[in-house]
Design a protein around this nucleic acid. Sequence first.
DNA 1: TCTTCATTTCATCACTTGGTGAAAAAAGGC
DNA 2: GCCTTTTTTCACCAAGTGATGAAATGAAGA
Lengths: 248, 248
Amino acid sequence: MTSQVRAPRAPSTSKGAAKPAPGVKSAGRGRPSKGAGRDLKETILDAAEGLFARHGFHGVTIRQVAAEAGVDTALIHYYFGAKRELFDAVFLRRAEILNSARVLSMDAYEKSHPGAMTVEGVIEAFIEPLLRISQDGGQGWKSYFALVAQVNNTPAWGGETMARFFDPVVHRLVDTLKIVRPDAQDRDLYWSYQFLTGSMMLALSETGRIDSLSGGECHSSDLGAVRARLFAYCAAGFEAVIARAPRG
Amino acid sequence: MTSQVRAPRAPSTSKGAAKPAPGVKSAGRGRPSKGAGRDLKETILDAAEGLFARHGFHGVTIRQVAAEAGVDTALIHYYFGAKRELFDAVFLRRAEILNSARVLSMDAYEKSHPGAMTVEGVIEAFIEPLLRISQDGGQGWKSYFALVAQVNNTPAWGGETMARFFDPVVHRLVDTLKIVRPDAQDRDLYWSYQFLTGSMMLALSETGRIDSLSGGECHSSDLGAVRARLFAYCAAGFEAVIARAPRG
DNA sequence: TCTTCATTTCATCACTTGGTGAAAAAAGGC
DNA sequence: GCCTTTTTTCACCAAGTGATGAAATGAAGA
């Protein structure tokens, strides 16, 4: 009864760079709206990313995205299909970059500290890539982290997507921690990770709450301050939970 | 073609016997949908609370709330006004209960441990009331915690409300911690609290993520497991951050 | 009884939502 | 130039959206 989602004419395939260059848009005389010579598709994703991060999936309309990107709403459907597919595209775009950066970081740490790894070192290798990317990656990445934090706390919604893309790297963390603390119980590691990810995502989403709470002494945008404390905080937490070893 | 004269309501059919259960309100035989003879206003708040918690403010329509509560949409506007006011009413209903429970808990701890308070003890006094209420308070409270967690991570939206209602008790926590660790810097305490609240809210929202992540070994509904670890985890984190005392 | 008043229902409004088909415009190969 | 394919715009729809005025209802007083 509901109109089935018709896949838009797929613009060639999706893989690789064989895309026939959808026309360097604003170069010639297409739309004069957006200045940069970037692909329109990326422009749409950027607009959607920022809006979704601020207002959530349901808080954003296709028309808002279109207005922000300076395109027609039909063009968004042409490229991405339904609204939910647009959201997924936003989510996917940076997920793989994130995952490979984290795996690389943990690989490097493991290799550079043979037989001498510490809990704090492992945790730093797990978190640091995100802090670095957020600091160096520009506004797009900051929006993305806010988006992930939001999805993380709205399980009924993107929970499955979360799991599909981020569980592997979490298992990698747990496996490495088990090398460092072979006697630790899985339960304790998983719960400790749950605590860690809550802290980490809230810090990365830079909600600004700490700014007013601290009367201006702390700033949520100060990721250096996060770096200076979060690793030690989480590592001590892990150690305490492992040491206590409750049979819960 | 739009506005034609509204005919006075047609006398309809025979008003004889077929009138279906007029809404007698509070006492006796209200709505058959909700079992208890509670006020309709509370029924509406309950419905709205559950839906807002699952789908967020924009993901819920007045009509959905009305259907869930078994009332007419106009009745919701009659009692609460605009949609946003309904949301605020949901948020407010339990906020004060929460705050007084926490203040009471910290008062009790402070009085019962004169000169012998510990960081972990203070943190337990701060968090434990929430765990207890969530365990004993029924589904309504669980929805409420999920709602708060969501608002906490969507700053552009309810950030101001969050601050107005929950900042005082946080300042109380910080003040008490300064008694226990007089040499601790404010910066460190605020950042540590930020990490704590991220962990705590994620645990309280019971997203179910840990269930699949751990392959069924942990359950997000197992607040006993949280209690057995979270206090120690956070306390160790606080101590580590204080001890490190970075000048960030 | 008759009147009053808070509550509840009904019908509807003005507008927005996601989504679509077809035409128009570029881009490109020949 | 001509013809084909991809990209972009335009007009529009069916189904909702939040919200409201007014009528209907029922309990409580007078």
